[in-house]
Design a binder for these strands. Structure first.
Lengths: 152, 152
DNA sequence: CAGTATCCCTCAAGATACTG
DNA sequence: CAGTATCTTGAGGGATACTG
């Protein structure tokens, strides 16, 4: 990955992009995250990605520790199962999805509804005070960058 | 943008990727979002992107309604200012950044701290009940896909 | 079924020089 | 200062055929 040298930006977004920043990886991750552990052909048919590319991407995802290969009994093949690192992407991906729903141009998309499993309550993604637990509005957010921004 | 035909996936992530899915756009957006309205050379120096490419990306971003060109008095140039659509990306981008911080490999990144502007309280990004306002844990989240998943 | 192995092609990325 | 204009390159994406 990374034609762009993402390391030169000392930026956490660039870090994420270094592992997710091509045109298929996030879609593959979404598929596994929403549909559960998947096998090669599941992904291939669901995404209509070329087999060739899928092989490459899965290799990178496994190397990056985002997927694990789990053996399938009675077969030499495996299932691709999301690791903790992958699960941690859930909120970021769903936030992106919500943005895509709101601002995307295609009226035919399949909308996503986020629910609390135990109660069925609808759930949103919000800024929340770490201590107080109170929801904070978007425009009342400020971001501080640590480290020396003067440095290269 | 979009070598991949993102429209064929009827998926909100694909929608988002169609507008943000190249290797620079998200970095440009982050820059404008965290640093405020920016001018051409600000972005160019900050990101060390080739001028050539920056021109293209800014054009696409303006066309997509993510940036507005605001005239600068006493000059024929403009400032690129984030629209509402761009502001709405804030939470998704910060969620990605947090993931990058947690799982990225570069120890030299500049960490981001998210604060409530009015109180200085630290803030996190969470799933929250739409109605009850209660924080919901990651593993207690379920995602339902609307529309017919059988369809092409 | 789950991949390899090839081969091709396009376009994003990059460097650089020029201009009002 | 804020862009255009050109040119090159290499990797990402794609189709397809083959295999245990």
């Amino acid at each position: 990955m990374s034609i762009v040298n993402y390391q030169k930006h000392r930026c956490p977004i660039a870090q994420a992009l270094a592992e997710l920043g091509d045109q298929w990886t996030l879609l593959i991750v979404r598929d596994a995250l929403l549909m559960g552990p998947r096998r090669f052909n599941d992904l291939q048919k669901s995404l209509r990605i070329s087999r060739n590319l899928l092989t490459r991407r899965l290799e990178q995802l496994c190397d990056a520790g985002i997927f694990d290969r789990a053996p399938v009994e009675g077969s030499k093949r495996h299932t691709y199962v999301p690791t903790q690192k992958c699960q941690d992407l859930r909120i970021a991906i769903l936030a992106m999805a919500k943005w895509g729903e709101k601002w995307g141009t295609d009226p035919n998309i399949h909308r996503l509804e986020i629910l609390e499993k135990s109660t069925g309550e609808p759930v949103a993604i919000e800024f929340v005070q770490t201590v107080g637990g109170k929801v904070v509005e978007r425009h009342d957010i400020e971001v501080v960058r640590h480290g020396n921004p003067q440095e290269p």
